[in-house]
Design a protein around this nucleic acid. Structure first.
Lengths: 240, 240
DNA sequence: TACGCAAATAATGTTGACATTAATTGCGTA
DNA sequence: TACGCAATTAATGTCAACATTATTTGCGTA
């Protein structure tokens, strides 16, 4: 497959999403991943049309696998297609990102409550390592922000710790891609504050104490804070 | 399209799900709906393989639209496909249905909290009508159960009342089909108890009072009760 | 009999062509 | 110039054939 899009390769950023490296790489799954990343980075703009004929020529593939890829992206909530009219990339308005965070709040606070019950000690050790890495990053860079990838790694670990297939799928496959897309394309949302690290620590503490209620409350707060921050910043930007 | 499957037409039961009747019915969307209903009713058995060649012959369509339909069903969590191996209908184990209800609990309790804020008086009137119908059904049949369709109608109305696209999609498109499938194929789970009606009334009361916290708690209880009931009945059945 | 390997069979993956529908262009008229 | 309609163009929807990969069958051997 000749990729004519300027997007090249996959950063570590995206790899964290796919825990199982796909052994049998079918063409349509390759197209799915390429387009997914191009949409998240904004290389393919929000609201733009995914023309089958144009893309199939650009990427040098037939329309069959391309159509399947578009269906896959639809399942990730990244595109929306209308019969006889084609598919368009989702536009993330302020209203939508706030709704996304409401859904995330509901699912991820439940996820961490389940994680407090279901995570084993190996999982918890891994969480410690991730937080230590965040601490290390802060001290070494004497900064006030932790990078987005590191933030995702922590949350993904917690989500998987719930051991609930439905919740894991809903969050990682249908909500987080949208969140990554939004954050990647809004510089002010790309990194997390030191407050986030403190909250991560509180979440980990609750999990270690096997306290689902505390874990849930803490996670809910954590996500509400992030939501409010987005709301504030976006309104500021609109008033400029 | 010649439907060779014994399943014929769509009952009111299924229609309640699709608020917008699709005007431009493309072949692949027809196939999707036919297969979806056949899977929910159990006409196509859990765990069975959706062979493209066999189905395309049976339904007298080419494999193209059929493959797209299978992708759509995958997005509804009704089938799971493995590259180079094909798609199989999901098997709803006790563990899975409990996980589904955990996800539902998280999302729908949030949905009703949002509905308490966002529903308008017309929406609320409609909820009253739905509950009145349930009351009427009970008195006329002097029974102790309300039919599943009536239960779904109430919950769908509340979910849509949240006005949150992401939550609506996650619940109606990725969780409720699984729940319908489970309930349809487990006679003991097909109808709801009179307790459910009482709880519906409490939920409606909370919405009318514009009390998101009360609404959320009540809905959570309602779903937890349903989950526990399923757990009890399934364990009983296993011990027989 | 049980096991493993190779041939045969059937499935999924992919492609290009055709059919049908939507979008565009350009002409004519008010 | 602005508007509406018809012809053209281009897009999406569908199909049948081919390519590639799994699965099955059946033979031979331990």
């Amino acid at each position: 497959m000749l990729i004519m899009l300027t997007f090249i390769g996959k950063s570590l950023f995206f790899h964290s999403m796919n825990s199982a490296i796909s052994l049998s790489h079918t063409l349509s799954s390759e197209i799915t991943e390429t387009l997914r990343d191009a949409i998240i980075t904004g290389e393919i703009k929000q609201g733009s049309k995914l023309s089958e004929t144009r893309l199939s020529k650009q990427m040098d593939v037939s329309r069959g696998p391309l159509r399947e890829a578009i269906r896959n992206l639809e399942g990730m909530n990244l595109v929306h297609s209308i019969p006889q009219q084609g598919a368009r990339v989702v536009e993330i308005s302020l209203e939508l990102i706030l709704q996304i965070y409401d859904a995330r709040e509901a699912l991820e606070s439940k996820a961490v409550a389940l994680a407090a019950r279901n995570m084993n000690s190996t999982d918890i050790d891994e969480l410690h390592r991730l937080i230590d890495a965040q601490v290390k990053h802060l001290t070494e860079n004497s900064g006030v922000f932790i990078p987005a990838e590191s933030d995702y790694a922590f949350h993904e670990m917690v989500i998987r710790g719930s051991k609930n297939k439905v919740i894991i799928h809903a969050l990682l496959h249908e909500i987080y891609y949208l969140i990554k897309m939004f954050r990647y394309q809004n510089e002010e949302a790309q990194s997390s504050s030191t407050n986030a690290l403190i909250e991560h620590r509180q979440i980990l503490y609750a999990i270690e104490q096997r306290d689902p209620v505390l874990a849930e409350i803490t996670m809910k707060q954590h996500i509400v804070h992030a939501r409010e921050k987005i709301n504030r910043r976006m309104l500021e930007r609109q008033n400029k």
